[in-house]
Design a protein around this nucleic acid. Structure first.
Lengths: 138, 138
DNA sequence: AAATATATACGAAAGCTTTCGTAATTGCAA
DNA sequence: TTGCAATTACGAAAGCTTTCGTATATATTT
């Protein structure tokens, strides 16, 4: 599976969240998101043009990142790969390029500087317990 | 601090590992690394041209990613920011774009699918303990 | 000294992602 | 039907990173 670019990823996020959508719907959601993000002080982000989103999604269809149903006039697009699988692929690439392939280094860095809440820590501890169980059985 | 690109990051990795170096030395190490990576079956990766590395490092100097000492004929380059700080910045950006800003999601994904060894898990558990202590005091 | 090797500087090409303008098509409304 | 709105298709421009050729300067070797 080909890795999505930054812009493609923002479209995939919308599709994962809201299911199969038309270009118009995706573009609307992307721009609504921009509006929400904008606070008074920040520079007013320019909305994404409709044909920009269209073109991007056409390219994604060519790459196989999305499937599209062309039976209706407004084509309906679906993410080709699930969120988990895509995150997994991007994570691998990121760990390789930035942490020399060491997932542990990544985790330590992520936990070390971010003030994780006790709830988050608890969730991670639970997962570690599970993993240790599996390890014992293996 | 500006985020380094993929190619720039590979140069920073060399500088972090080996300290201040000339363009020639960086280029040699990049290509030696390529040679090591290459196994018999893989397509023979093309070595990186000297002027390519030179130009990239000049651009990095312009961006402020490296400092350079031009007192000698062969300029000597140094990484401007430390490895930890740079990793931290890249991590933040990655968590935002790929995990919607949730470090916890990233950690869970990183631990979940990678068969971490018990030594790795122990290291992470230690860190969690420390963090919980700090949390109590805060 | 002359020839050779090595360095930097610099512009431009190549390759990629994103943005945009415009034409052609289709559906809908007056 | 005619006109208007919305959609796709498509090429090209803009912007960025990477690669490369070449000119120029500086050292080294013969």
């Amino acid at each position: 599976m080909i890795a999505p670019t930054e812009g493609e990823l923002s479209i995939l996020r919308v599709l994962w969240e809201a299911g199969p959508l038309t270009v118009r719907e995706v573009n609307d959601r992307l721009n609504r998101r921009l509006l929400k993000q904008r606070s008074a002080a920040e520079p007013p982000e320019k909305p994404i043009g409709y044909t920009t989103t269209l073109k991007l999604m056409q390219v994604m269809a060519d790459k196989g990142l999305v499937h599209r149903d062309t039976s209706a006039r407004s084509h309906v697009y679906t993410a080709a790969a699930g969120r988990e699988r895509t995150q997994q692929g991007l994570l691998r690439r990121f760990v390789d390029s930035t942490f020399g392939g060491s997932r542990t280094q990544l985790v330590l860095r992520a936990l070390g500087e971010g003030n994780p809440t006790s709830a988050e820590l608890a969730e991670i501890k639970d997962l570690i317990k599970q993993l240790e169980k599996e390890d014992r059985h293996a």
